[in-house]
Computed example of a mutant assay.
Amino acid sequence: MTEKRTQAPMHVKTWTLKLDLFEDGDTTTAHGVLDTGDNVLESRSSAHRSPQDAAVPEIGDEYAAGRALMELGHQLLVAGMHDAAANTPATSG
C-alpha cells in the first residue's frame, strides 16, 4: 500500500527593498530600507572616490549600494539567529 503525502499549500511573501543613492562631490551614500512585512531594516553606507581615480559615478553607486546591501544581509542573518534562538525549546540539564 502506497502512502500519500499531502503537501502544505505554497506560502508566498513579497519583501520590498528601497535603495536611494546620493552623490555629493566625491562621496556617494546609499540608504537601504528592507520591509519584510514583519520587520523593517535600514542601512546606510558610503563610498569615497580617491582623487587620482577617474570620476565615474556608477562605480561609487556600486560600492555604496553593495555595502548597504551587505549590511542589510548581515542584519537579516542576525535577526534570523535571534528568532531561531527565541523559538528553540530550552533544554534542562
Rank of each mutant, 00 (worst) to 15 (best):
Q7D: 14
A86D: 04
A84W: 06
T6S: 11
E42Q: 10
A79P: 05
V40Y: 09
E71P: 06
S50H: 06
T29Y: 10
G25L: 09
T6L: 09
A55D: 12
V56K: 08
V56Y: 07
E23F: 03
R67T: 08
M70G: 10
T91D: 15
D20G: 13
E58G: 07
K4I: 12
E42T: 13
G80W: 10
R44K: 08
W15R: 12
M70P: 03
F22Y: 15
P57W: 07
A65V: 01
G25C: 11
S46Q: 12
T91K: 14
D26P: 05
M70T: 10
D53V: 01
F22N: 15
A64V: 02
S50I: 03
T6K: 07
V40G: 09
V78D: 14
S45P: 02
A79R: 08
A65N: 00
T16G: 15
M1F: 15
L34H: 03
K18W: 13
T29N: 08
D20C: 11
Q75L: 11
A85S: 02
L34T: 04
H48K: 12
T14R: 13
N39V: 04
D26R: 06
P57I: 07
Q75H: 04
A8C: 02
R5L: 08
L72G: 03
T28S: 06
P89H: 14
N87D: 11
A54W: 08
T16A: 15
H82A: 14
L17G: 15
L19F: 00
T14E: 15
V78N: 05
L41I: 06
T27V: 09
D83H: 12
G66F: 00
V33C: 09
H48E: 14
T27A: 03
A90D: 13
D26E: 09
T91E: 15
D83G: 08
L76Q: 11
D38K: 06
W15E: 14
T14M: 13
V40E: 14
R67H: 13
L76M: 13
Q7G: 11
R67I: 06
L34P: 02
H82C: 12
